[in-house]
Computed example of a mutant assay.
Amino acid sequence: MKTLDITNWQQFLDTISTLDQWAFRGQVVSGVPLYSSLSRRLMMLDAPAEEWALREQRTVRVFRRKAHVHIDSHSALDNTLRCLAMMQHHGAPTRLLDFTKSPFVAAFFALQAARSDCTVYALNTPALWSLAPKNFPDLTRNTINPRHNTQLETYFLSNQFPVIWFGEPDEMDSRLVAQSGLFVIPGVLNMSIGELLQGYETPESGDLLVRLNLRTEMRQEAMRELYRMNITHATLWPGLDGLAASMHQELEIVWQPLLDEASKFIHTPPSKTS
């Protein structure tokens, strides 16, 4: 996997201009392999690998049995991919990895809480569209399409096939829409996305996965530029929770002329004298 060090905003812009129609994922901690939240949870629990598929299937069954009391429309629970997307949206560990079509959204999620170097992963989705694993050439994108329950259960929930699929459910929720989001779905939970991609032919157009290492020194400039682009928690997480979280950014982004003007109206107590 190619790694590029990005030290300033202009270099970031120049780099992403060469990654047209790729998908992106921002991670606060630099260099951490791409595992789903479900994989990370099962690793933390030290669960035996042979139990991973059964444990995942049980969480889906339990969620389906209980989620209906909290939602108005139960049709979303009928389609397993939409059900997994709902689980992901509300904080359940799933095999779905959140990506976005926007490199700027990915940069925001990487940088917003970073205090050291962070990472944006770029996935070559135009090349992957027509590829299948070298050892399973019949497992094309259409063959394994997880929008269909039987294919999701066969090629993904079985945890047996080293495949990758990317895309959205047939119906997207407001958060996916706001974030230009899509999911990357691994067929094997105990392999990272990078490891799974090693089973695919490298396209003539270049790498399937590129890691952009965003250096600490670019953070302040980048966060200011993202703010100017209206990329904040308030726009990416529709609702009051997103608005409240965006106050972190408001504390950070300071326009000096406005600050100077506001300071005129701040009362400063007189100093004490002895």
Rank of each mutant, 00 (worst) to 15 (best):
T216G: 09
G91T: 06
E56Y: 12
R147Y: 01
N79T: 00
R115Y: 07
F183V: 06
I266G: 11
T150K: 08
K2I: 11
A114Q: 01
Q179D: 10
G206V: 00
Q11R: 13
Y121K: 05
F156D: 01
R141N: 15
V69S: 08
V120W: 04
F12W: 11
Q11N: 05
G242R: 00
A23I: 14
T80H: 10
Q21H: 15
A92R: 02
L259D: 09
M87Y: 08
R95K: 15
G167R: 03
V210N: 07
A49Y: 02
S116M: 08
H90V: 14
P257G: 14
S17T: 08
H89Q: 15
L42S: 13
S36E: 02
S102N: 03
P33A: 06
L209N: 10
G167L: 05
S130I: 12
T232V: 08
H148N: 00
I71R: 13
L259C: 10
R25W: 04
N135W: 00
T15G: 01
A262P: 05
D78V: 04
R95S: 09
H68F: 10
R41A: 11
M87D: 03
S130E: 15
S192P: 06
P162W: 01
L123A: 06
L139P: 03
V120I: 12
Q220I: 15
T119G: 03
I266E: 15
V60Y: 10
T232S: 14
T216Q: 12
L111R: 07
T15F: 07
R64F: 04
T18I: 06
F24I: 05
W129V: 11
N149H: 15
H74W: 11
T3K: 14
A47Y: 03
W237P: 00
